[in-house]
Design a protein around this nucleic acid. Structure first.
Length: 570
RNA sequence: CGGGGUGUAGCGCAGCCUGGUAGCGCACCUGCUUUGGGAGCAGGGAGUCGGAGGUUCAAAUCCUCUCACCCCGACCA
């Protein structure tokens, strides 16, 4: 490909809309163009990267026997009513009407459609297990699109769905998929890490996310320094030393004027934060809940939601609090039952013999409160957010918290959708049974951007060869004829080559080459008089090779092979 | 949805406070020169000043409303 034909337009200045490096670079290098918030055109260069990733993904899917198809992105409401998600999904689901006023959705995911496909054809246990996948554009009306392709509203996703006879089939498909994902991210030049995760809206039991550690990641992951334990903060657990408690006392009301925060109360009453029980009131779809955690802990809202089976929890309004006779800053568990509030306690408060709580009365707290005697808890569970430095729940090692970009997610769905949508088959005994399903996603665009985030320098992108838009860029400074010849020869050898044939100064060509990030560069310039071309790598410009004209093609072929091997060996 | 910010040529910005009919750099077009790290000279094209309404002899500039986009938070496979 010649630059003049390639539709490449780079930006000289930083685009104002971008904040993080990978987003800036994708825009500057002319890889993507924004059309609306969270909606992007993949320009020719960016699209080549997408296609490279798609190819790696489909090769790995094919390797584990998954079958590719393509499902519609516009889907009828009826299907979503069958699964119950027409009601559940909320505003993120883009709903549209056709000319006859019939309701449709733009697919944010394809469980419904794929079950519909399977149930049309798969009636016998002999057809199982089966895994179907597609690579397709999806739409989720995200509340806040951000960081370019990192969190778009329209985005390309590989989604796969496995259908099995039983748990054993599911286990096998799940493991195959897990291994495929490891290979995919490795081949893209990324160091991914699988972490335990909350299953969220899609539901089901087992769930692992594939994360790439990065400071710009939107998720927090908890990792053990000793064993392989790793979990999304939403799900993570830990072991905590519980300090020795004070002896039991009788309950006593104390005057605490304007002391609203745990910190203030702790200082004013001279008690440790661990001795205070913090009461957080939330309103769900069904009722009000009180979540009790130690004063030194924070409530993990995802765990809270899971515990009460609510999809949404919001803090009560001032009026709602007032109506219940409660005061922000002086909330406490004593007497909440009478107000018909469901009380949940974090596991760590269960054995407290003595604590300080709000008195549910302006400017007063209670001391010497004892659980069971002074108030009761409807349910104990893990509600707290894990903190850096706590102990690993598996091996007691130290936990650290880092940020990560979620690139893939594998779920065990079991029969959640097949049951609701009557997706069944007949087993060996002719008995009707529901598909045991798994679902597996990879964000393609997000993966592309994560690669940029991990591989760049101050000059631009440094594509790993496996996902680079081109393998080689030729910068021709003198001899046009030879440049053209070399270009054609390389193409003949299946080397993807970009020849910069623009009438630009050398500086511009070098700068663009570094910005766009093609892994191998061939400069045809002053050494051409000696019959030599100059070959260098984007990742290390210090190393340069002067290669005789007739050996260039062979040399580059070798180089490409080596670069690929390097990536695949990690 | 709450808080903050920005909309002026393809991109990045100045002009707005103090109203007088739009400017800079880059990019683009033409010509000549230049050619190993974002070239020089000369000439040129390009803007409903986000939109609507209002105030005024006169609005990019002042007022009201509105839309879009960005950031933080809430939220989210």
């Amino acid at each position: 490909m010649r630059f003049n034909q390639a539709f490449i337009y780079t930006l000289r200045e930083d685009p104002r809309e971008a904040e993080i490096t990978s987003h800036k670079l994708l825009l500057k290098a002319g890889m993507i163009l924004k059309l609306a918030s969270g909606i992007y055109t993949y320009l020719p260069l960016g699209f080549r990267v997408i296609e490279k990733i798609n190819k790696i993904v489909s090769e790995e899917m094919d390797r584990i026997g998954a079958i590719r198809l393509l499902m519609p992105s516009v889907q009828p409401k009826e299907l979503w009513e069958e699964s119950g998600r027409w009601k559940e999904y909320g505003k993120e689901l883009l709903r549209i009407k056709d000319r006859n006023d019939r309701d449709f959705v733009i697919g944010p995911t394809h469980e419904e459609v794929v079950v519909d496909v399977a149930r049309h054809f798969v009636r016998s246990y002999k057809d199982l297990p089966l895994t179907l996948y597609q690579i397709q554009t999806k739409f989720r009306d995200e509340i806040r699109p951000r960081f370019g392709l990192m969190r778009g509203r329209e985005f390309i996703m590989k989604d796969a769905y496995s259908f099995g006879k039983d748990e054993k089939d599911l286990e096998k498909s799940f493991n195959d998929m897990f291994n495929a994902y490891c290979r995919i991210f490795k081949r893209c030049g990324l160091k991914s890490r699988a972490v335990e995760a909350d299953t969220g809206l899609i539901g089901g039991k087992g769930s692992l996310e594939f994360m790439v550690p990065s400071s710009v990641g939107e998720d927090e992951i908890v990792c053990c320094n000793r064993c392989s334990y790793a979990a999304n903060i939403e799900k993570a657990e830990s072991r905590v030393e519980i300090p020795r408690a004070r002896p039991e006392q009788s309950i006593k009301e104390v005057y605490t004027p304007k002391k609203k925060t745990v910190e203030e109360v702790s200082q004013f009453l001279n008690v440790r934060r661990e001795e205070i029980v913090k009461t957080l009131i939330y309103k769900g779809e069904r009722r009000f809940y009180a979540f009790l955690v130690r004063g030194c802990d924070e409530l993990n809202i995802v765990k809270a939601k899971r515990a009460v089976g609510e999809t949404e929890l919001r803090p009560p309004s001032e009026k709602e609090l007032k109506d219940m006779g409660l005061h922000l800053g002086f909330l406490g568990p004593v007497g909440l039952k009478e107000k018909d509030i469901y009380v949940l306690g974090d596991n760590l408060i269960k054995d407290m013999k003595w604590c300080v709580t709000g008195a549910n009365k302006e400017d007063f707290h209670l001391e010497g409160v004892k659980i069971g005697r002074d108030f009761s808890v409807d349910m104990y569970t893990d509600l707290r957010r894990v903190k850096e430095g706590e102990n690993c729940p598996v091996c007691n090692g130290k936990l650290s918290i880092l940020r990560g970009i979620e690139l893939g997610h594998v779920f065990k769905l079991e029969d959640k959708y097949s049951r609701k949508m009557n997706g069944y088959f007949l087993d060996e005994k002719g008995k009707k049974r529901y598909y045991v399903m798994g679902c597996y996603g990879i964000g393609i665009g997000r993966t592309a951007q994560a690669v940029v985030e991990m591989h760049h320098d101050e000059k631009g992108i440094i594509w790993p060869l496996t996902v680079a838009p081109y393998d080689v860029e030729i910068i021709s400074l003198t001899d046009k004829d030879y440049a053209n010849l070399l270009h054609d020869e390389l193409e003949k050898e299946d080397i993807e080559v970009l020849l910069d044939d623009r009438k630009e100064s050398p500086g511009v060509k070098f700068a663009d080459c570094d910005l766009i990030g093609i892994p191998i560069r061939i400069v045809l310039g002053k050494y051409l008089e000696q019959g030599k071309a100059e070959v260098s790598l984007r990742k290390d410009r210090e190393k340069r090779f002067l290669i005789s004209k007739h050996e260039v093609v062979g040399f580059v072929k070798n180089l490409k092979r080596e670069l690929i091997k390097e990536i695949e060996n990690g």
